[in-house]
Simulated assay, not measured.
Amino acid sequence: MSLLQVQHLSRSFGGVRALDDVSFALPAGQLLALIGPNGAGKSTCFNIINGQLRPDGGAVLLEGEDIAGMAARKIWRRGVGRTFQVSAAFHSMTVLENVQAALLSHHRKLSQLWRPASAYFRDEAMQLLEQVGMAGQAQRACAVLAYGDIKRVELAMALSNAPRLLLMDEPTAGMAAHERNELMALTRRLVNERGISVLFTEHSMDVVFAHADRIIVLARGKLIAAGDAQAVRNDPLVREVYFGSGNTFETAREERA
């Protein structure tokens, strides 16, 4: 059985059908890319899986349990982590303190502090920072970090609840090419070591084709293609809907460089 099963998901906003009968599955230990043009329904799909939106219909099964409509905090407790396109780190806090704050939430200690928060889960936080290559910057304020390093801190925070499923929304947005590949290579290593599943959205096709095990494509709320990189790259409907007539993935990569 797949770790995540999305079944016949639908969601409308007024007269706009953001998701229209979308179904897909994600096995354990796999990186699945969710791509599509602006307005395709990617964020809506993410926000339903994460508990920030309720679907109008359909189910989101996490190891067989329907989590659709649950509060985001309850989904977090069930082992779903998330990183965001816009930085969610506290820039006035140190790298270490950001990860400690995530661990305090995971261990339900936020309302039971009898000593300074910085004294809790220090070793556990340092282990997470070691995994993402940020232990050497633990005492630096996030405000002074390079953008790629902030993304690594957010990844450590997302790993604080030992997730079975990790949702990554535009994880490499704003990064240089070498930073994009380094972050996704790190994500691949963590997937292999932890056996977790990753669902990520991404506009950089070089990242998608280089790192995703499978790719699913949305357009106007509908799932129009699914498969490995080669199958999606060669799909005529994907070329037409995603890039427009006469355009190709290779041309799009050049335009985005």
Results as ranks from 00 to 15, higher is better:
Val6Ile: 13
Ser10Met: 06
Ser12His: 15
Phe13Cys: 09
Gly14Tyr: 10
Gly14Met: 10
Gly14Val: 08
Val16Gly: 11
Arg17Met: 12
Leu19Ile: 06
Asp21Lys: 06
Ala25Asn: 14
Ala25Val: 14
Pro27Thr: 09
Ala28Phe: 09
Gln30His: 14
Gln30Val: 13
Leu31Cys: 13
Ile35Tyr: 09
Ile35Glu: 11
Gly36Arg: 08
Gly36Asp: 12
Gly41Met: 10
Gly41Tyr: 09
Ser43Asp: 10
Ser43Arg: 08
Gln52Cys: 15
Arg54Val: 12
Pro55Phe: 02
Gly57His: 08
Gly57Cys: 05
Val60Gly: 04
Leu61Gly: 04
Glu63Arg: 15
Gly64Ile: 05
Glu65Asn: 11
Ile67Lys: 07
Gly69Trp: 12
Met70Thr: 06
Met70Ser: 11
Ala72Gln: 11
Ala72Gly: 04
Arg73Trp: 14
Lys74Glu: 15
Trp76Ala: 14
Arg78Glu: 10
Gly79Arg: 02
Gln85Ile: 04
Ser87Pro: 11
Ala89Val: 15
His91Trp: 12
Met93Trp: 09
Val95Lys: 00
Leu96Asn: 00
Glu97Tyr: 03
Val99Lys: 00
His107Ile: 00
His107Asp: 09
Arg108Leu: 14
Lys109Met: 15
Ser111Gln: 14
Leu113Glu: 10
Arg115Lys: 15
Arg122Val: 15
Leu129Pro: 00
Glu130His: 13
Gln131Gly: 07
Gly133Cys: 04
Met134Arg: 00
Gln137Trp: 12
Ala141Gln: 12
Ala141Met: 11
Val144Trp: 06
Ala146His: 12
Tyr147Arg: 05
Val153Gln: 02
Val153His: 03
Met157Leu: 02
Met157Asn: 00
Asn161Gln: 13
Asn161Ala: 15
Arg164Asp: 09
Pro171Cys: 11
Ala173His: 04
Met175Thr: 05
Asn181Lys: 12
Leu183Lys: 05
Leu183Ile: 09
Met184Lys: 06
Val191Asp: 11
Arg194Lys: 14
Val198Asn: 00
Leu199Met: 11
Phe200Ser: 03
His203Asn: 06
Met205Gly: 04
Met205Ser: 06
Asp206Lys: 12
Phe209Leu: 14
Arg214Ala: 09
Ile215Thr: 00
Leu218Asp: 04
Gly227Trp: 03
Asp228Leu: 07
Arg233Gln: 12
Val241Arg: 12
Tyr242Gln: 02
Tyr242His: 04
Tyr242Gly: 02
Tyr242Thr: 04
Phe243Asp: 01
Phe249Gly: 08
Phe249Trp: 05
Arg253Trp: 07
Arg253Thr: 10
Arg256Met: 13
Ala257Cys: 07
Ala257Val: 02
